[in-house]
């Protein structure tokens, strides 16, 4: 399989289960207790997820806690290993190879060079004791840069872009507010211009004005650099503002997907309807 021309990232039949599974729950038509197998207790955190991310597009993923959104993101970033499925990236050998089958060293290379990740909690994405500028350099070093001058120039550029005053670039993020930490994390993820950016609940826990800043920044970056993004959120307002297309997840499966406006204005699945109306 090869990715189509306009597709940046393509996922087929992605699954993740915790536990060995049994003959009952491995069957496609098995009825599970939410996402837990009643026979063997295996948790199916993600089951049979397929989608394409188009170039320059922002794809939203919504769903309640425990629906498998973050697990999906972690599998895309190789933080967790998928139990089964196929995963192609247009920027790795023209999407010719299933990247799940690569060695851990090649996966690491893809993480460093093709993907960018912004975690909900900046602790996972940043080295809190190293200066902000070094944090950005870490991504650049990992993707092969060995020139301090170039790296500090790039670091300054992106810190400027996310509105971190440059006189604080030598400070470690542990001294920063939550919003600033999140912005440093975004700057780091962007610093080597990755073609695909993964954003996992980036604004959760930030106050409203900071949230607006961060969203504005994401939108601007996407327009300017044409980076493809996957945005996970449980906040429908954010999804409505940012995303071209949206997938709704429940108990590890995608229950509905389509153009964001369509999903929010005319939800088909009972759960999506409940989700949309509970916010209004």
């Amino acid at each position: 399989m090869k990715t189509a021309d306009n597709v940046a990232l393509c996922v087929r039949n992605f699954s993740k289960h915790y536990g060995d599974g049994c003959a009952y729950c491995m069957d496609e038509d098995a009825v599970l207790d939410r996402n837990i197998c009643p026979e063997c207790g295996t948790i199916h955190a993600c089951s049979d997820i397929s989608f394409d991310l188009h170039k320059g597009e922002i794809l939203g993923i919504v769903g309640e806690s425990g629906s498998g959104k973050s697990t999906l993101m972690k599998m895309l970033y190789f933080d967790q290993e998928a139990s089964s499925g196929e995963y192609h990236l247009a920027d790795f050998l023209d999407g010719d190879r299933d990247v799940l089958k690569l060695s851990s060293r090649q996966k690491r290379q893809i993480r460093n060079e093709i993907l960018g990740m912004v975690y909900q909690n900046p602790v996972y994405g940043l080295k809190m004791e190293f200066s902000a500028i070094s944090n950005i350099a870490e991504k650049l070093i990992a993707s092969g840069s060995r020139n301090v001058g170039d790296m500090t120039a790039t670091g300054d550029h992106f810190l400027g872009k996310v509105n971190i005053p440059l006189n604080r670039k030598y400070e470690p993020p542990v001294n920063f507010s939550g919003g600033m930490q999140q912005r440093v994390q975004i700057a780091k993820a962007l610093s080597n211009y990755p073609p695909v950016l993964l954003l996992d609940e980036v604004t959760t826990g930030l106050d409203l004005s900071v949230q607006a800043d961060v969203l504005e920044l994401i939108k601007e970056i996407q327009r300017e650099l044409g980076i493809s993004m996957i945005v996970v959120s449980h906040d429908l307002a954010i999804i409505r503002m940012l995303c071209d297309r949206t997938m709704v997840m429940l108990d590890g499966s995608v229950i509905e997907s389509g153009i964001t406006d369509q999903i929010l204005e005319d939800p088909q699945h009972a759960y999506t309807q409940q989700l949309v109306y509970s916010i209004l």
Binding site: N112, S134, E138, V148, T152
Partner: peptide, 22 residues
């Protein structure tokens, strides 16, 4: 051990970079 296996040495470089910054 995993980092050595993956030849992922940005941590070692990062330490030197941080010293230059500081």
């Amino acid at each position: 051990k995993q980092l050595h296996a993956d030849k992922e040495y940005s941590g070692a470089w990062l330490r030197l970079f941080e010293q230059i910054m500081r």
